[in-house]
Structure formats: structure tokens, C-alpha cells
């Protein structure tokens, strides 16, 4: 508990100091609980998520950083490795490939990389995975772009 709090506090200070260093990621610690964080990440360019801003929620276990944080999308997203209803993410570094040397910042970078390079063979969203696996790239991109417009972009007018 003490170790994880100390480590999170280090990360918090690092985030304050480096504010704006990475324009794609904005990490925010909950005002009252250092074990709850949120992040805003920008959809990577040349993907159907370009132009969208996606919100992530972090729940950090007491054994952090020996155990990985639990991360999910709060913003609806159409992506084969993200559960369409709950926002749960299927990513190896958040499961068995976790290393205590990862940080919340590096997790965000990994998630951005996942958005650009989906893994349709281990899908949480089967519809999305099937579109990619059957080679219907246009279908996948238009669905993903539609949901980005609907959920991850400011409403026009």
C-alpha cells in the first residue's frame, strides 16, 4: 500500500512536471483518491479514430506496480480489442505481459498503439473483429469512424 502510494505520487509529480510534453496524452489524478486516474488520449492519425478524444479510467490495485492497473474506455469505441458495452481492453501488457517498469503514461502510449494496430484474432468486439478478419477494411473503418464521430468528437452546433 505504502509502496504503491509512493510510486503513484512519483508518477503524479512526473506528470505535473512534464505537462504538455506528450500532446496526445493528458493524465489526471482523482482529487480525493490517488488510486483512481483518468486520461484523455487523442485518436492516432491515419486511423478511423483520428480527430476523436477518448477518455480512459484507471483503477489501480494496492499491489501496483507489481500488478497492472485496470484500464477501460469510458468513451464508446468500435475496436476489435475493446468491449463495446463495458469499454474493457484486451491488451497483453495489462494482463500476463505486465512489467512493473511500465507507468500509467506508458500504458496510455500502448493503448494508442493498439488503436492504430488492432489484433482481430483475439477480439472482445466480435463484429469489429469479423469485419477485419474477412478483409472488409472499408466496412470496419466506416463503422469505427461513425462511432468516433458520435462519441468522441464535440457535438457540432
Amino acid at each position: 500500500m505504502q509502496t504503491s502510494r509512493a510510486r503513484l505520487f512519483k508518477e503524479y509529480k512526473e506528470v505535473q512536471r512534464e505537462k504538455g510534453a506528450d500532446p496526445d496524452i493528458q493524465l489526471v489524478c482523482d482529487d480525493s483518491n490517488i488510486f483512481k486516474w483518468t486520461a484523455l488520449i487523442k485518436g492516432p492519425s491515419d486511423t478511423p479514430f483520428e480527430g476523436g478524444v477518448f477518455q480512459l479510467a484507471f483503477a489501480i490495485p494496492e499491489q501496483y506496480p507489481l500488478q497492472p492497473p485496470q484500464v477501460r474506455f469510458l468513451t464508446k469505441i468500435f475496436h476489435p480489442n475493446v468491449h463495446f458495452k463495458t469499454g474493457e481492453i484486451c491488451l497483453d501488457i495489462l494482463k500476463n505481459a505486465w512489467s512493473p517498469a511500465w507507468t500509467l503514461q506508458s500504458v496510455c502510449r500502448a493503448i494508442i498503439a493498439l488503436m492504430a494496430h488492432p489484433e482481430p484474432d483475439s477480439p472482445l468486439n466480435c463484429d469489429s473483429g469479423n469485419l477485419l478478419r474477412s478483409g472488409d477494411i472499408r466496412g470496419y473503418q466506416s463503422m469505427a469512424r461513425m462511432y468516433t464521430r458520435l462519441a468522441a468528437m464535440p457535438k457540432k452546433g
Partner: peptide
């Protein structure tokens, strides 16, 4: 590293 103080890669102390 040649420094006297080295940062741990996990706890950053």
C-alpha cells in the same frame, strides 16, 4: 551509471 545515486526502475526512488 557512474553516479552515486541511481534511480530504481520500479519505485523511482
Amino acid at each position: 551509471p557512474n553516479d552515486n545515486e541511481i534511480t530504481c526502475g520500479i519505485c523511482f526512488e
